[in-house]
């Protein structure tokens, strides 16, 4: 019989409230927190880089005076 378990219980016998936490890898909460915190900060850094690069590319593609005038004219409801 395999007894390996990521949880603290392998059956629901006895007093259920004695089980306490139901999730796997109990005891690793601080590590989970640190991983989550790091991912959150990294996400912001990656996102800001992506956003800035997108703007740079778009300014190169659409930022000249003639193109901008054409785009703005398309928004004009009186000159569809």
């Amino acid at each position: 019989m395999i007894t390996t378990s990521t949880g603290q219980f392998t059956d629901f016998a006895g007093n259920i409230s004695d089980i306490g936490p139901l999730y796997p890898f109990v005891g690793g909460e601080v590590l989970f927190f640190l991983i989550g915190l790091a991912l959150w900060i990294v996400w912001h850094i990656v996102q800001i880089n992506i956003e800035n690069k997108t703007y740079d590319d778009e300014i190169k593609r659409f930022g000249n005076k003639t193109t901008l005038k054409k785009i703005i004219k398309r928004e004009d409801p009186y000159n569809p």
């Binding site: 409230s17 306490g20 139901l22 999730y23 109990v26 909460e29």
Partner: peptide
């Protein structure tokens, strides 16, 4: 606190 056991699925008892 984010590392509290009570921030996850929990059945109560002595730890609560």
């Amino acid at each position: 606190v984010p590392w509290s056991e009570l921030m996850g699925a929990h059945m109560g008892g002595a730890g609560d």
